Simulated scan of single mutants.
Amino acid sequence: MKIGIISDTHGHEGAWVRACAEFFGGADLILHAGDVAYHGPRNPMKADYNPMGLIERINASEIPVVIAKGNCDSDVDASCLAVPLMAPYAYVVWEGHRIVVTHGDAVMTDAEKDAMAAHLKADLFISGHIHVTVLEKRGNTVFLNPGSAALSKRPDGRNTVAVLEDGAIHVCDIETGEVLHHLALDW
C-alpha cells in the first residue's frame, strides 16, 4: 500500500506536480486535506500559482484522489473538480485501517482531534490548515499534518508532503526530498 498525503496547495500547480513526480509515483491513493485552489487573502501568491492548472491536473490524475474541504475551498472551486470536496471530513477504509481526513479548521485543538478520532475509531487522523507538520501517535491513533505543499509556516520554511508506505509514514521536504519526520506504524 502506498498513499500520498498532501494539504494546503492553495492553487500552486507546481507543488502538485513536484509531489506527484517525486513522491506519489506508484501510489494507490492520494489524500488531500483541503485548501486546494484558492490562495487565501493572507497567503502570498508564488510564481507557480495556477489554480485552473492545478484543478486540471487533479482531474486528470490516474491515481484516485480524495479531498477534504478546506476553509479556503469555495463552491466555485468545487464545481471545477471532478472529485467531490468532502465536508467536514472524508472517511476512508484502506486495507482494514480507518483513515479520517479533515482540513482542521473545525477541529483545531488536540482534544477536539482526539475526540473525533476516538468517535470514528480512526487509525490515522489527517489534518491540514496550520501549514506546519505534525506526526505523532496518541493512544491508538496516529495524527498527521503533512504541512503545506506550497505555503509553509514551519520555522524553517520547508514545504512538505507525506507518504504512507511499507508500514511507515514519512514527511518529506518537497524541494529536497529529505525525510524530515518518520514514524513506523504498528498496523
Results as ranks from 00 to 15, higher is better:
108 M>Y: 08
170 H>I: 00
31 L>I: 11
139 G>N: 11
117 A>S: 09
91 Y>M: 12
55 I>Q: 04
131 H>S: 14
24 F>N: 13
97 H>M: 10
8 D>L: 13
118 A>I: 04
175 E>R: 06
41 P>W: 06
6 I>T: 02
180 L>S: 00
120 L>S: 01
80 C>Q: 09
79 S>H: 09
129 H>A: 10
38 Y>P: 03
138 R>M: 15
179 V>H: 00
7 S>D: 07
96 G>Q: 07
152 S>H: 09
171 V>Q: 00
25 G>M: 05
47 A>H: 15
177 G>I: 08
95 E>I: 06
22 E>A: 13
16 W>L: 10
74 S>V: 12
173 D>M: 01
46 K>C: 10
44 P>F: 04
12 H>M: 08
42 R>Y: 08
103 H>M: 06
21 A>L: 15
55 I>F: 02
118 A>P: 07
19 A>V: 15
163 V>C: 06
103 H>K: 05
77 D>P: 05
135 L>P: 00
169 I>A: 08
143 F>K: 12
6 I>S: 04
95 E>H: 15
53 G>T: 03
47 A>E: 15
104 G>D: 04
15 A>S: 01
136 E>N: 11
7 S>Q: 05
179 V>Q: 00
170 H>T: 11
142 V>E: 07
94 W>F: 15
102 T>S: 11
19 A>D: 10
90 A>E: 04
165 E>C: 14
5 I>T: 13
163 V>G: 05
48 D>R: 06
94 W>V: 03
134 V>H: 09
97 H>I: 08
88 P>S: 03
56 E>W: 06
44 P>V: 13
11 G>P: 08
27 A>M: 08
35 D>N: 11
174 I>R: 00
59 N>P: 07
184 A>I: 09
10 H>L: 07
82 A>S: 12
29 L>H: 13
183 L>W: 06
181 H>T: 00
185 L>Y: 11
65 V>N: 02
106 A>F: 13
47 A>D: 15
30 I>R: 09
116 M>G: 01
168 A>P: 07
163 V>P: 02
107 V>A: 14
172 C>Y: 02
163 V>Q: 05
71 N>V: 10
32 H>C: 08
81 L>A: 06
167 G>P: 15
36 V>R: 02
152 S>W: 04
14 G>L: 02
54 L>R: 01
122 A>I: 05
107 V>N: 07
11 G>Y: 10
43 N>H: 13
116 M>S: 12
151 L>V: 13
86 M>F: 09
62 E>T: 02
76 V>S: 03
50 N>R: 14
184 A>C: 09
66 V>S: 03
4 G>K: 02
